[in-house]
Design a protein around this nucleic acid. Structure first.
Length: 577
RNA sequence: GCCCACAUAGCUCAGUGGUAGAGCACGUUCUUGGUAAGAACGAGGUCAUCGGUUCAAGUCCGAUUGUGGGCUCCA
């Protein structure tokens, strides 16, 4: 990816200049922001009176093409600071950038066809080198990403050195749209949204199967890794949120209700509830690490502009757990978390997991010694497990350092799934204690951890990852029985009940339709296994199996079929046979 | 919350001021079939909501709600 970025950097940046130049020709009063290269393209931010919409892009493209055809050369000029200030005197955003450039550094501008822009470069030699480009969308963007600063208009585009590569890229975008979980969710009857509950999915029976299978899987791991699952309240007195700090720091994202003149907050996180649970009795060091898991439903108010499909919703559940332990037990806990995460991401075939270690921020609680210890522990655990990670100083939570696991989706967007966060603050706020070996009271550390994160979001990412073709264990309908004619229906029912006995989810397509049509239906629903039942099969007591891949198995015995798919399901395999 | 776009049948969409359409899905009937769509017929709409302009609004204007693309936030 990086190599490709480098390869196209000059090209795309030059395309951005050409676009800016075109916008300038159309709207001479435009004030220019910045126009950087991004993954797969570029953008440029403008302030202009005209409100741009996507229909304006064609006109801009036309002028860009003219400039490209004119074979204009890109010239680099080094100018003095005062020349620069003079040259961009009408461009407030450029002036701001100039002010920020190191006094000892050269100021360079690039010029093509009379359009000059403050720019470090590099650029291609000639506008003609931009062989293929396309403007993709317009969007609003704050100057410097700051909500308090002016709203600018941003145009996104992309450029390649051949039309063919551009077309490939545009096709990829189309492909990605097809595997969008919102589209597939509707096509496969997994979930839907209704304006009556904005940003809140309704999971249909099929989607609920996937959701619950994910929970079943995590529960198995909890057994394996010795967690204890709990169920905690949904609504808590505001007193709790004041004590936890959420009332001060997270209030805007919370829902509140009034009852008997008392204010209650609906939980956006489980941690305070688990702190209360921890405190419900006096704990001994013998009980630690105390691992508490909770699939409790959480509600977070997200502003209407930020919600998105399943990946950003208001109500959701997490595979959430908190580990209360001593600081010396942290190593072991992290090790076993890394093992658990790895085991899990392998199951879903997530190979490109990116791992970030976020270190102490400026605003933080706890003493330096604590942070030193915690950070070095996290770092060492990652290294000992041969994990590639990048450290991000200053990015940690105020209550402790954390390790985040990111996975890219079909559109190349990265989603944070797993997270491991050390917390020194909450044990303090809730005055959590345990009795140590010497009979003294000590303060435990709290580890917040989630592996799949929000199950809603995870499901969305999974749908895109597999393009809707879920592994058999997650498929809502695992086997579709297709009787060829009505007279085969009895045998179909017989087979279905056989499969039901071993917990294989089976449907029979008994519609008055031709076999071809039923197969097509099964394919479109991405059912992994289809069983065709006709005279031949019934006579020789076999089944003929068609896989979702289009592959046909030889006629096999029912027993062989059941053993085969049961094995794949139990192993949570991705391959079908 | 901010900028832009969109909202028509269950779904995907066409409909550029003058009587609301298609394909798929759905229902009924015929057909009983061999590895990705058998045929005929039928039902289905307060064009998101509210207000305005006009002789006349799905169509133009405004507001509201929702959705999408971004920005921002993500203790």
């Amino acid at each position: 990816m990086l190599e490709q970025d480098d390869k196209y950097h000059a090209l795309r940046h030059s395309a951005a200049h050409i676009m800016a130049s075109a916008v300038c020709k159309l709207y001479p009063d435009t004030k220019f922001g910045i126009g950087p290269v991004i993954t797969d393209g570029f953008y440029y931010d403008f302030v202009l009176d005209k409100r741009l919409s996507e229909t304006d892009l064609e006109e801009i493209e036309k002028i860009m093409q003219q400039e490209i055809d004119q074979n204009l050369s890109f010239e680099k000029l080094i100018i003095t600071r005062s020349e620069a200030l003079d040259l961009f005197s009408e461009q407030p955003f450029k002036l701001e950038i100039i002010e920020e450039i190191d006094k000892n550094e050269d100021i360079s501008i690039y010029e093509h066809g009379g359009f000059q822009d403050l720019c470090a470069g590099p650029h291609v030699d000639s506008s003609k080198d931009v062989k293929a480009f396309k403007l993709l969308s317009v969007a609003g963007a704050y100057w410097r990403g700051d909500e308090k600063r002016p709203m600018m208009q941003r145009i996104y585009g992309t450029a390649f050195d051949s039309v063919k590569l551009l077309d490939n890229h545009l096709e990829l975008i189309e492909e990605a749209k097809k595997r969008d979980h919102r589209v597939l969710g509707k096509e496969l009857d997994l979930f839907f949204m209704d304006p009556i509950a904005p940003a809140s999915p309704f999971f249909l029976p099929k989607g609920t199967i996937i959701y619950n299978e994910l929970i079943n899987y995590v529960r198995e791991l909890y057994h394996q890794y010795e967690y204890q699952e709990v169920i905690t309240p949904q609504i808590f007195s505001t007193d709790l949120w004041k004590q936890s700090g959420h009332y001060d720091n997270y209030k805007d994202n919370m829902y509140f209700v009034l009852a008997e003149d008392r204010e209650f907050g609906i939980k956006p996180m489980n941690c305070p509830a688990h702190a209360v649970l921890y405190k419900s009795g006096l704990r001994s060091y013998r009980e630690l690490p105390f691992r508490v898991a909770d699939f409790g439903r959480l509600h977070r108010f997200e502003r209407s502009g930020v919600v998105q499909g399943l990946t950003r919703v208001r109500p959701f559940s997490q595979d959430d757990a908190h580990i209360f332990c001593t600081i010396d037990q942290v190593d072991h806990e992290i090790d076993s978390l890394i093992a658990m995460f790895k085991q899990t991401y392998d199951i879903f075939n997530f190979n490109d997991v990116r791992i970030a270690l976020s270190l102490r921020p400026d605003k933080r609680v706890g003493d330096e010694e604590m942070w030193d210890k915690a950070e070095s522990k996290l770092q060492k655990c990652l290294e000992d497990n041969n994990i590639n990670f990048k450290a991000f100083p200053g990015e940690g939570a105020f209550y402790g350092p954390k390790v985040d696991f990111f996975v890219p989706d079909a559109l190349g967007r990265e989603w944070q799934l797993g997270t491991i966060q050390l917390d020194f603050s909450l044990p303090e706020r809730f005055d959590l204690e345990y009795v140590n070996e010497d009979g003294q009271r000590s303060r435990p550390v709290m580890v917040h951890r989630a592996m799949l994160g929000s199950l809603e979001r995870f499901m969305g990412v999974l749908i895109e990852h597999f393009a809707g073709s879920m592994p058999p264990w997650l498929s809502p309908s695992q086997v579709l029985i297709i009787p060829i004619a009505d007279r085969h229906l009895d045998k179909a029912l017989e087979l279905k009940s056989k499969l039901a006995k071993v917990n294989i989810r089976t449907e029979i397509d008994s519609r008055n339709e031709r076999m071809n049509s039923k197969i097509r239906e099964g394919q479109m629903n991405k059912t992994p296994y289809m069983v065709i039942l006709g005279d031949k099969e019934i006579e020789s007591e076999v089944v003929s199996v068609r896989l979702r891949t289009g592959e046909n198995l030889q006629s096999i015995s029912v027993e062989e079929f059941i053993t085969g798919i049961k094995d794949k399901i139990d192993k949570r395999a991705i391959e079908l046979w």
